[in-house]
């Protein structure tokens, strides 16, 4: 039974990959911009080779990448190469492969996205739980309110605001980039510190933009759970407040939030891309932005596919982990 479920989920992931790659395949092709031509037109201007040479070069590269074939054939070729885990090369930056672009930018995205997603989840849910708990001290409950006010403010706006005031005006933080210019990336502590220093503002924008949602939903959940008979009975048993809060209240109130976490990652990636671009962090989002501007479609396909795949995998993972948290859910 377990095996069948796993097979079903793998089939689901394959469907997701297929659907995502099909949808993303055709959209960039509706534009008549040619990334190869754009690249060599640039070279032609600076390097000084003739317009007719340019046409020859573009044609030969198009042939090399199979862009001269009919669109439908290109589509089947593309799906075929994905099936072999080959995402192709950047048309704009070849011989760089799409895989290497993703590989290089992934650490930046993971550190920003996951750190802020997890911090925001933990902070938001704790604040929400405390805010709904009738026995929490008043000042602790009040802490939640300002966070709620940020709900609905897009992280991008917060990012712009923070960038302008804290980095540009007050010069408290760097104006973007992954690390200070002039130092080389290595695994030393001082370099790490430098990187973290550059991630403070983007992370704060991401956290502030999403924490209020957790506070709100958790507070609502908490109000429901705190009235449950089992929380009441726990108090009748003479348990101390902390045990009731942790074992009877928080554990139950958190269950739907965990499902929400996987869903929230999807939208976090979207806002994360914009924040990354704004702070010039070389993450997946920035790379995707660059690729879109150059209509570098193999890179667009690759990154979109990778993100879709990651979110879908995380959701499947949550589904498998959920029964560990809630014994009522049995997989079969």
């Amino acid at each position: 039974m377990k095996l069948r479920l796993i097979l079903r989920r793998v089939a689901f992931l394959i469907m997701v990959v297929w659907a995502a790659s099909t949808i993303t395949f055709f959209i960039p092709r509706m534009s008549d911009r040619n990334p190869i031509r754009e690249r060599f037109a640039e070279l032609a201007r600076t390097g000084g080779f003739s317009a007719s040479d340019l046409e020859v070069i573009v044609a030969s590269y198009s042939k090399k990448f199979g862009l001269d074939k009919p669109l439908l054939e290109q589509y089947t070729d593309y799906i075929g190469s994905i099936a072999q885990f080959d995402l192709g090369v950047s048309l704009n930056k070849f011989p760089k492969t799409v895989t290497s672009i993703i590989y290089d930018s992934l650490p930046w995205t993971i550190s920003l996205l996951f750190v802020s997603a997890i911090l925001s989840f933990v902070i938001g849910n704790l604040l929400g739980a405390v805010a709904a708990w009738p026995r929490s001290p008043g000042w602790l409950r009040a802490v939640a309110t300002p966070f709620i006010m940020f709900t609905g403010v897009p992280p991008v706006l917060l990012a712009i605001f923070l960038l302008f005031f804290l980095a540009f005006k007050l010069k408290l933080f760097p104006l973007g980039q992954a690390y200070s210019t002039g130092i080389a990336p290595d695994w030393t502590f001082s370099f790490m510190l430098n990187v973290m220093w550059h991630q403070v503002l983007p992370a704060i924008s991401m956290i502030l933009g999403s924490v209020g949602g957790w506070v709100l939903s958790m507070r609502g959940m908490g109000i429901t759970i705190q009235g449950e008979d089992y929380v009441n009975f726990a108090e009748h048993k003479g348990l101390d407040g902390r045990t009731i809060f942790r074992n009877y209240y928080l554990r139950n109130a958190l269950l739907p939030q965990v499902t929400g976490f996987a869903l929230a990652l999807g939208s976090l990636i979207t806002s994360g891309s914009v924040v990354e671009s704004l702070y010039a962090l070389p993450g997946l989002g920035s790379k995707l932005g660059e690729a879109i501007r150059a209509n570098d479609f193999l890179v667009i396909y690759g990154i979109v596919l990778f993100i879709t795949m990651s979110v879908a995998t995380l959701m499947v993972l949550v589904e498998f982990l959920y029964p560990l948290l809630d014994p009522r859910i049995k997989q079969d």
């Binding site: 449950e228 008979d229 089992y230 009975f233 048993k237 101390d240 009877y248 269950l255 809630d326």
Partner: peptide
């Protein structure tokens, strides 16, 4: 001791019965 009205929902759905009983002893 109070045995509540509505015992149907008086047990924590995500904890084993034993753990809920042990909680009660531990508290005292």
């Amino acid at each position: 001791a109070y045995i509540p009205q509505g015992a149907m929902n008086s047990l924590n759905p995500v904890m084993r019965i034993g753990a809920q009983m042990v909680d009660a002893i531990k508290a005292h």
